[in-house]
Amino acid sequence: MPLAVGSFDPLISAGPALVWTVVLTFVFLECAFIIGLFLPGDSMLITAGIVLASHASGEAQVWALSLGTMIAAIAGNQVGYVVGHRTGHHLVARKNGRYINTRNLQRVSELLQRHGFLAVLVARWIPWVRTLCPMVAGAANMDHRKYTIASTIGAVIWAPVLLLIGYYAGSFLERVPWLMPMVIGTLVAGLIAGTALGIRHYRQEMAKPAEEFDVEHPAAVLEAEG
């Protein structure tokens, strides 16, 4: 058993610094830019919590990282809003795109128009909506104060909850010495594979022909499609 745990000593030793770097980068990108659509955000947060549970200072680290992820998510949302706002009412969609298509932009636009503040809160828990929402809100000129309050509340709830779920699940797994290394190895391998696959899908998506999406008149765009 000690050999199994020892085989992950480099990962556990590098844990806090590596986890902080990956988590903060992923959270910011997922909330700010289109590439975030293709990153494994939720599973990454849970994995980070489990990895930190293996470290001696894990409890202090996970609470500090929870605060860090809140700040990264809030900052990412503001960047995403500004990016959308600077496009005016026109966003770039991708013909036959898997995520960045006019239909998905239409759904997010309608969600914001109908539910506003509540929609921004709910968007935090839906991966692809989480990334598109800030840009659509900015392009639609949603009241910035209302958007900031809603996105901040969402950030305070989302990332820390998933991190803590991972951490306390990891604390439970620590009671079974042979199981923890296996779980960490599987999750980290899955995270690396998911990230590589996501980047590949992002490149494929962005290579598709671009088309304009008008936030003010989304229905007209869909009618023109067919």
Rank of each mutant, 00 (worst) to 15 (best):
A189D: 08
G198T: 09
H89G: 14
P40A: 01
G190T: 10
W20H: 11
P177Y: 06
E174P: 03
V62I: 14
P209S: 11
I165D: 10
L222C: 05
K146V: 08
A159M: 04
K95Q: 13
V136I: 02
L222F: 03
V122G: 14
N77P: 06
T47H: 02
I35F: 10
E59G: 10
S66Y: 05
V188K: 10
I157P: 00
N141M: 13
N141T: 11
C31A: 15
E30R: 01
T87N: 12
N141F: 15
M70P: 02
E223I: 04
G80C: 06
A150M: 11
A137G: 04
W125P: 00
L52Y: 12
G6L: 10
A196L: 09
A4V: 07
R98Q: 09
V176M: 05
A193R: 08
Q204P: 03
V92S: 07
D42V: 02
T69I: 08
A207E: 05
A193Y: 11
Q113E: 13
A139H: 04
M135F: 01
V129A: 08
I46T: 04
V23S: 08
Y168E: 14
A32T: 05
G15W: 09
V22H: 03
G97N: 02
T195N: 05
I34Y: 04
I12L: 13
Y167V: 13
S66K: 08
L179S: 12
I184S: 07
S43V: 10
T195C: 07
A210S: 14
E110M: 14
I12K: 14
V136R: 01
A56E: 15
F172T: 13
L163Q: 06
L37I: 11
A14Q: 10
P134L: 09
W125T: 03
G88M: 10
M182I: 15
G138A: 10
G166K: 12
I153G: 05
T152M: 12
L39N: 01
V51T: 12
R175T: 12
L29T: 08
L18G: 04
A159R: 06
V183C: 13
A48L: 02
P177R: 07
H55C: 15
L39A: 09
A72Y: 10
W128G: 02
R114F: 13
Q78N: 15
W158V: 08
A155T: 08
L105V: 00
D143G: 08
F28V: 03
D143I: 00
Y167Q: 14
I165S: 09
A219L: 07
S54Q: 15
A119P: 06
N141Q: 14
I12R: 14
S57D: 15
M142K: 06
G80N: 07
A220W: 05
M1G: 01
V176D: 06
E225Y: 06
Y99G: 00
D214A: 06
L105F: 04
I71V: 15
G166I: 11
V176T: 12
S109M: 03
R130N: 06
Y81A: 05
T69V: 09
E212A: 12
V82E: 15
P160W: 03
L162Q: 01
L29W: 04
A73K: 07
E30I: 01
